Every structure is written in C-alpha cells, then in structure tokens.
Amino acid sequence: MAVRRYQPGDESQIQTLFQKTFHQERPLDAWEWKFKQNPKHKEPFILVFEENGKILGHISLWLMSAYIKGCVETVGVRVDTMVDPDARGKGIYKHLNDALIEEGRKAGITYLYGFPAPKAKELFLRYTGASHLTDMPRWMYVQKPVSLLASKLSLLKVLKPLDRVYGKIRKSKKTPHGYEVKRITRCDDAFDKLAEKTKHTADGLVVRDAVYLNWRFFDHPVHHYKMTALYKQGQLQGYVITHEKEGRFRNGMIVDWLAVDDDAWRALLEEALSVLREADIVQSWALPSMMPAHLMKKNGFVHKDSPMPLVGKEIESDNTDMNDPDKWFITPGDVDSY
C-alpha cells in the first residue's frame, strides 16, 4: 500500500470513491473541468492511496496563481479529500496529508488553504500543523420577506404581492452611479489589467485574470453564472458574478466580485441586486476586513452565520504571517462547490 500521484485511468475509481464518500453522483465532465481543464494546472494535482490495486484514499489541490503581497505565487486550494468508509482506521488520511505537504513543496506551492468539513478540519490541523484562520462569515439580504416566510408557512402565499410593493420602495432609493454597465459572456485582456490594478486589494488573493475567470465561470459544466461589468471612459472598473438557485425559495448568490475603488464597489452591489431582483434572498461571503463586508452591512445585509471554516498551512516558512485572515480576499468563487 502506498500514496502515489494520479495516473490517467484512475478516473473511474476516483468517481466511485467520491460517490461512496459524499453520497452524490458527479458527472465526469465536472471532474474533467475541475482537474484537467484548469488553466493553472500543468497536470492534475491528485494523490491517491492505493492498496492491492484499489484506490482507498484521495487528496487533491486546485493550483492557482495568487498575488501574495503583490507578487505572483502558486497556492493550493484543498478539494476532494476522501477515504473509503470501509478502510478507515488504517491511517490513510495521515499518509495522504504527509504526502501532500511534501509534494506541495516540490511543486513550489507557497500556501495551502481550504474549507473542510469539521472532522476533516480536525485531522488536517492535527497532522499538518495547519492553522484555523477563521470561520467564513455568510451575509444575507432579504429582498422578498413575504415570499421567504411563505416558503415555510404556505398560508402566507396570498400575501406575496406585498413583496412587489417592497421592491418598488427599495428600487426608488437606488442612486445613479454613472458607470457604463455591460453583460459579459467572455473575458478579454481588460480583465488581466483589472487583476493587476487590484493586486493590492489584500495581501493574498487569487489572480482573477481572463483565463482564470473564463475557466472558473464560463466553462463550468454544471453551474450557470452571470457576469456584470462596469466601465468608465472605456476602462474596466470592476465586475460581479451572480448565480441563482431554485428550491423552497429563490436563493441569489454574489459569487465573486472585484473593483478598483469604493465607488465601483458600491455600484457593483447595486447592479448585483438588480440582476438578482427576482431572488427572495441574496447571500455572499466576506471577511470582516474586506470592503464587501462593510458595504453589505451598510446596505442592509446581516451576518447570518459562519458555517465554513477557513484553514491554512504555509509551505514556505517566510509566509507564516499569511495565517492572519485579515490578509486574505476570499469569495464563494474560491470554493469549488459554488
């Protein structure tokens, strides 16, 4: 039994292990998008634990270019850590994490971070010396309070028209912002320039250049996103990515956004709420030190909860100060599940 790198042909066993571990099917094209089409990967960064020809464990990274204090470095986002439920107790998780740190060092990765489930978090901290930076705050804005209540109490459905009145009152308070607004279906080199302009938004943030944004959002095989961009005098000033999901209620999500200054941030929030105007609620993540957190709080969003832990592990010793959550810019788009 041993830990080894991914080899072509492992897909079938990996997909079977995913279904057995997480109790959900994953289309093969979603796996290929995630690991084979990522433009920041030369090859999939996947480690498997194999015994007698059977894959019993799996750990992997999204490799991303990131601005760390303004310089482009490689970071790894932990995804799809799993051990066959019938093989637990063999120390497989520890073997995988030990190999991950060593292989990450060989690959020149500066920093590892991720958003693990509670048990995975506990083991990751124990076996690697990683740090629990914080729990990601989730912010929520109720656009249709009656519809939201009616999703829990059907008797209130007759009152849904009141939401239209509430929406008109809210719309009347919208402030003209003076930007040219465009719907984007493919990013061009203007987004490379925007990434460079905004590289000091935080000490740590993924490089949101055109090739990354096109792959992450427009090439996704399952989710469908909308991108709205702001321009002034022909120059890109910011963008926002939104997504809607139907369920008991209509959930709108601000998945990712980036802007050159405070005015553009404010305009992006207005445009996001306009795009998501049919959603009952709008949600997003934002760390307290981030401009989006201050902006959303000022505009009626409430801190609903903090359900997702953020853990990190420095690979190079001179990056220990990156264990401070205030140094990071993170959105739901940094996670593969959104």
Results as ranks from 00 to 15, higher is better:
V282T: 14
D263E: 15
F217E: 09
T228S: 05
P221C: 05
P307L: 12
Y231R: 06
D209E: 12
D305Q: 12
T198I: 08
H223C: 04
V302G: 12
F301N: 02
A272H: 08
T201P: 00
R266W: 01
K226V: 11
W215L: 05
W265C: 11
K298H: 13
Y212K: 11
G238I: 01
H220Y: 08
R186L: 07
R250N: 10
H220F: 10
D219A: 13
F191P: 01
M290K: 02
A229R: 03
D280C: 12
W215E: 09
K245F: 04
S306G: 01
E271Q: 15
Q235H: 07
W285A: 05
G252Y: 08
R186E: 13
W285C: 09
A202D: 10
K226E: 10
Q233V: 00
H223M: 12
G234T: 03
A229L: 09
K304E: 14
L287I: 07
R277N: 15
R277V: 12
S289V: 02
Q237I: 00
D192P: 03
W265P: 01
G300S: 10
Y225N: 10
M227Y: 00
A202W: 05
D188M: 03
A202P: 02
L310V: 12
D261E: 14
A267T: 09
T242Y: 03
R266D: 12
V207H: 00
W257F: 11
L287G: 04
F301K: 06
N251L: 13
D209V: 05
A293M: 08
E278M: 03
V240D: 00
M291T: 13
P292H: 07
R186S: 13
D280H: 12
V282W: 06
Q235I: 13
P309T: 10
D188C: 06
P288I: 10
I241R: 04
E278L: 07
Q233P: 00
W285Q: 09
G238T: 00
V207A: 02
V240F: 02
N214L: 04
V206S: 03
G234M: 05
L194M: 11
A279K: 09
A272R: 07
A279R: 07
E278C: 02
R250D: 00
N214W: 04
T242Q: 07
G204I: 10
T228K: 09
D209R: 05
S274F: 08
K199Q: 12
H200W: 04
D203M: 07
V260R: 09
K232W: 06
S284E: 02
N251G: 02
E244M: 15
E246W: 07
C187G: 02
D203S: 14
K199I: 01
R216Q: 14
Q283N: 14
Y231L: 06
S284V: 01
L213Y: 01
V275L: 05
Q235S: 12
N251V: 00
D262K: 15
V240L: 07
V255R: 03
V260I: 14
K245A: 14
D189P: 00
F301R: 03
I254C: 04
P292A: 04
M291V: 12
F218R: 09
I281D: 03
H294R: 13
K197F: 03
G300Y: 08
H224S: 14
H243T: 03
